[in-house]
Design a protein around this nucleic acid. Structure first.
Lengths: 268, 268
DNA sequence: TATGTTGTACTCATATTGAGTTTTACTCAT
DNA sequence: ATGAGTAAAACTCAATATGAGTACAACATA
């Protein structure tokens, strides 16, 4: 049997249906605080719950790839035009397909992770009742395992786990890639870049060492000739302006300080 | 409408069908050479071509998760029992869903990456005509982009790209995780561990510095009291034996030497 | 027994890091 | 204005990590 003969007889509907969705963990920094884009679901299941923006991938519809689907979901929810979307970093995070994660049917969800500069307030898309940038800290999750009690809005499906994975990925990516610049505008200062690291890592960094390190990594940033027009809000000299360099990896990496602890220990 | 009412009316078949497959990039080291598990396809499409082992995820069938499906595919193709599978490292690599990547229909493939100690010769599974451990070098691919001309067996679908991504992931993982030990038995010597790095990275390492580094990273390896019974095949003293430690991340990392070049340069 | 190989322990010059200090330029509240 | 506080950027210095090489004893093989 040739491939052609085979394809003529092939019936895609002979298998049990599995739905594929794309969900997006979109991160940005507002007022020095890391935020994630959440929508409030308008329809069942989990109507009224907060969730990551996302939607079903239709098999035919425009023949769109997974990444394109993620970009579309993000654009729909943020009102970003294609131009503004160009400055947003988008990468695949992982795929979640545990049986029972969606009560309707077997759903495989391909999660994407997005970093963007301070974006406008979102407008709710098609099947969302509401859309907001939510401060990540207030969601009370630190790792995949832990889940804060009480206090917080619980996310629909397994989105809390996906978000936790996205945050961990974001923290790791800042170590060895220049992607922190994706949270900033075209030009930025070293202290602004440091603020990104501090927001994502959640701990203060040594200003002097950070400054030295960033300038010593080849291709991380390149200086424009300029400085800011004024000093900082609370004083201090004007800062020099930089733009992102051409490096794709930081070498050597900017290691985050701290917890030697979570390096150890087997999964028990 | 409550969730219950909604679910009662919900018809999964109202959507276009999308198939989900799981493919596995299984790596092992035989005679100091990195090998990948390949099968020769028995059925169309691409009958007769080499491909990564994998198969469709059925919606119902045992309510199996994606990871379980990958483990099952791996076990079917290698004849590994559950016990032996326990020593195999298995992680999700990425999901490939470009339209047209499978001529039959829209197929989303979730790829997994596996590292195992030298495993027995595979026996062909259900829809494979043949299964082999193939030396990776002979496949003539170095990165996602490049594809060697002539010489090599081409892989079916987009499996060459998936394999390339898996290899790059493996190379990176050896830098900052102790997963190199997954290619070895329960106990091993430092030179054996070094051989793993050299096989995966494809370049020789400084024996003395490697030795010092491995022993200095906390939790990478822990000594058993023993040594090998004899010296090396071509001479040399007996080597001390170690087993994997409890670290999950190497700190500081073991950076691979070389190409400062591919760190730079934007995608043009 | 001679020869070559290799595991392990060294040395040493050169980065890289973490912590702190200094200088200087700015804002803001008197 | 003026002084107090702040912060950018450039330092210093000790501790640590790295790359390259040397030394030597333990081993296999001829």
């Amino acid at each position: 049997m040739t491939d052609e003969e085979f394809l003529a007889e092939y019936d895609p509907r002979s298998y049990d249906p599995i739905a594929v969705t794309v969900d997006v963990v979109a991160l940005t920094i507002r007022d020095g605080v890391l935020h994630v884009l959440l929508i409030r679901r308008a329809n069942p299941p989990f109507a009224g719950s907060w969730a990551l923006p996302g939607g079903f991938v239709r098999a035919v519809e425009g023949e769109e790839g997974l990444r394109e689907a993620a970009a579309r979901e993000l654009a729909e929810e943020t009102g970003l035009t294609a131009g503004a979307l160009g400055r947003v970093h988008l990468e695949q995070l992982g795929t979640y397909g545990a049986p029972g994660r969606d009560p309707r049917m077997r759903v495989i969800s391909v999660a994407y992770l997005a970093f963007g500069p301070d974006l406008p307030d979102p407008r709710a898309g098609s099947d969302a009742a509401e859309a907001v940038w939510a401060p990540v800290d207030a969601l009370g999750l630190t790792s995949t395992a832990s889940q804060a009690p009480g206090t917080t809005r619980r996310l629909a499906f397994d989105h809390a786990g996906i978000l936790a994975d996205g945050l961990e990925r974001a923290r790791a990516k800042l170590e060895y890639t220049p992607l922190a610049t994706a949270f900033l505008g075209e030009v930025f200062t070293i202290p602004e870049l440091r603020a990104v690291y501090e927001s994502v890592w959640g701990e203060p960094l040594h200003a002097g060492n950070f400054h030295r390190k960033v300038l010593s990594v080849p291709g991380f940033v390149e200086g424009t000739g300029d400085t800011t027009a004024t000093g900082g809000r609370r004083g201090g000299p004007r800062a020099r302006l930089y733009r992102a360099g051409d490096a794709r990896l930081l070498h050597p990496a900017l290691l985050r300080p701290g917890s030697e602890d979570d390096l150890r220990q087997e999964t028990p």
